[in-house]
Amino acid sequence: MNEKVLLVEDEASIRRFTKIVLKKHGFNVLEADSGEAGLDIVNQESPLVVLLDVMLPGINGFEVCKKIRETNPNIGIIMLTARSQDKDKIEGLNHGADDYLVKPFNPLELSARIQSLLRRMDSKSKSNNLISGPFKIDLDAKLVSKDNLQLNLTPKEFLLLKILIENKNKVLNRSELLDLVWGYNYIGDPKIVDVNVRRLRSKLEKNPSEPDYVETIWGMGYIWKEN
């Protein structure tokens, strides 16, 4: 496991106990005794999860949470506090926290919540991107890159590439691609598929006339070959 978890807690006894428990469960635990110190560690170490006490010297946990979210939207945040009122839980969540645990907490529950949060984060990360060879498709931003260089695709070319990669090593005929990219009610020339495949190859392939990725299977259709 060994994922970095930052514990921002001003009470040394709670930090020591929590660190011991989390290390036993395989986490690499970083420590901070104030909000300012916690923000410095976030910037330097990029932990996957921050365990954040609300009542801190200096800036409080809600403000720390807000500042983390402004610059690190993908970090998981679990608020730890002695407060149990609903308004405090709501305030923490409104500032960007992913979860909330009230002290005193069961250390096994804390470990389970961290693991659950990491699974959700991993699932979200995987679902928002498609990776194939040198290509990365950001499904949220609708961007495609090859070897970390962004490609300029039209919306239809983007959708065509997405469908081909999602069905890699499977032959898709012209009719199937027409329905999936242009819609079942499209009444134009079906050769628009071939035109867009050629355009897509010109942007993806090193040698479009001898494609490495978007291959033609004569008499059948097109296939994405993952190299």
Rank of each mutant, 00 (worst) to 15 (best):
K203R: 13
S202Q: 15
E176V: 12
E205Q: 08
Y186G: 01
V181E: 00
D194E: 12
D194W: 02
N169G: 15
V195T: 14
G188Q: 08
K191F: 13
S175L: 11
P208I: 11
N173Q: 07
L159I: 03
P208C: 10
L204H: 04
I163Y: 04
K168H: 15
I187E: 15
K203S: 08
I187F: 11
N173M: 05
L177M: 12
L177Q: 02
K206E: 15
Y184L: 12
D179M: 09
K203Q: 15
L172M: 15
K203Y: 03
L178I: 00
Y184C: 01
N169M: 07
L159Y: 04
K206G: 13
S175K: 14
L200V: 11
N196M: 06
L200Y: 02
S202I: 04
V197L: 13
L200N: 05
E176G: 01
Y186C: 04
E176A: 12
S202T: 10
F158N: 02
I192W: 03
L159A: 15
G183C: 07
E205Y: 08
N185H: 11
W182K: 01
S202F: 07
W182I: 03
L161G: 06
K206D: 13
K168C: 03
L204K: 07
Y184H: 14
E176K: 14
K191W: 07
L160P: 00
F158A: 02
N167H: 14
F158Q: 01
K162M: 11
V195W: 10
S202A: 14
I192V: 12
L178M: 10
I165G: 01
I187S: 12
V181S: 01
S202E: 15
L180G: 05
E166R: 08
L164N: 04
K168A: 11
E176N: 10
L180V: 04
I187H: 09
Y184F: 10
K170T: 11
I187V: 11
L164I: 07
D179L: 03
S175Y: 11
N173Y: 01
L204G: 03
Y184T: 12
V197E: 00
V181M: 09
F158M: 08
F158G: 04
Y186W: 10
D189T: 01
K156G: 01
N196F: 09
P208H: 09
D189S: 10
L200E: 00
K191I: 10
N173T: 06
L160Q: 03
N185Q: 13
R199Y: 09
R198Q: 12
G188T: 09
I163V: 14
R198F: 07
L172W: 02
K203D: 05
R201H: 10
F158K: 02
V181R: 00
V193N: 05
L204W: 02
K168Q: 13
L172A: 04
L178N: 05
R199V: 07
K191L: 12
S202W: 01
R174S: 09
D189K: 14
K170G: 07
L160V: 06
S175I: 11
L180R: 15
V195C: 06
N173E: 08
N196A: 04
N185C: 02
I187W: 05
N173F: 06
V171Q: 04
L180W: 02
N196G: 03
V193E: 01
L159T: 11
K156F: 12
K206M: 13
E157L: 04
K206H: 09
N196E: 15
Y184R: 12
L200W: 07
K170R: 14
G183I: 00
R199H: 14
F158I: 06
R198A: 15
F158C: 05
